[in-house]
Design a protein around this nucleic acid. Structure first.
Length: 274
DNA sequence: AATCGTTCCTGATAGC
DNA sequence: TGCTATCAGGAACGAT
């Protein structure tokens, strides 16, 4: 599942496309196409972006933002199994390649997605998207004090649910929420209001530490995640708790436990995380 | 108003 | 062995 580190890895790789021109677009799965939150046909989507120059490729949380010289932006969300692949040489269209951008200089940019949950949204510069307004852990304004303010908004919610809420903090998903809480020594079932200021400080540090390390290791490939050249990340080799239920904790040898929080599987060490 | 449950989709895995 | 049933997962949306 691409979360902030995986999306950052892809965005970094996609920088080679800056300045290139989109010469065409075709789609075999129109359902995933939107314009300012409304459905749009592949034909119209293609017409809107063909001829545009790619000004920049950035990210906010898990969203990839391709800004065009026309002022429009293509907002891409990979959800669980989406992949963005740069193919310089012509390639066979495989089963899960749903969208293809043709580029003047760099061949094609392919959107492949087994589960078909990923989305491509065309948004005009005036359109305000709620998920683009959320603070990102790598924003300069994301301090321990700011995290404390966020926690005050949902005092009764579990800390795991808060870390995963994209309208509170952008970019942390199921893998990194569990890993961050292990690093911070905080039990995922704790409520926001129960955290001391020392723990909030530790949590803030852990968010930045874990995400930075995961970016350095080019993300976590537990299942479908691949970078834009199709290669796996390496963070799955250093996971402490995620999907390690039943195995012993690398720090204390206690058996890693799993619990469901907000409809999501959650992993933690009952001894290390208080 | 805020929170909960359901939906989307397909491959992997469990159960018979 | 081969079939069917169940599950995972992020975010949108409907229901309470």
């Amino acid at each position: 599942m691409p979360e902030l580190p995986e999306v950052q890895t892809i965005v970094t790789d996609l920088q080679v496309l800056a300045g290139d021109i989109i010469t065409g677009f075709s789609s075999a799965w129109q359902k995933s196409l939107k314009q300012n939150n409304s459905p749009i046909s592949a034909k119209r989507f293609a017409r809107e972006i063909t001829g545009a120059r790619i000004k920049s490729i950035t990210r906010r949380g898990k969203f990839i933002i391709i800004s065009l010289s026309s002022g429009k932006r293509i907002l891409i969300h990979l959800r669980m199994t989406g992949q963005l692949l740069i193919k310089n040489a012509p390639t066979e269209r495989s089963k899960h390649m749903h969208h293809v951008f043709s580029l003047k200089k760099n061949g094609t940019l392919i959107f492949a997605d087994v589960r078909k949950f990923g989305t491509l949204s065309l948004i005009s510069d005036s359109f305000s998207h709620p998920y683009l307004a959320t603070i990102d852990p790598f924003d300069k304004t994301f301090s321990a004090a700011r995290l404390h303010e966020i926690l005050k908004k949902k005092p009764k919610a579990t800390i795991k649910a808060i870390l995963m809420d994209q309208l509170l903090i952008a970019g942390i998903g199921n893998i990194y929420a569990s890993e961050i809480l292990f690093a911070a020594k905080i039990n995922p079932l704790r409520t926001a209001a129960s955290l001391s200021s020392e723990e909030i400080k530790m949590l803030h540090q852990s968010i930045q530490k874990i995400l930075t390390k995961a970016i350095r290791m080019r993300g976590t490939s537990v299942s479908d995640y691949r970078d834009s050249s199709g290669s796996k990340g390496r963070f799955q080799t250093v996971l402490n708790v995620y999907k390690r239920d039943g195995f012993s904790c690398k720090k204390c040898a206690t058996m890693i436990a799993s619990v469901r929080i907000a409809q999501r599987s959650t992993f933690y060490c009952p001894t290390c995380q208080k």
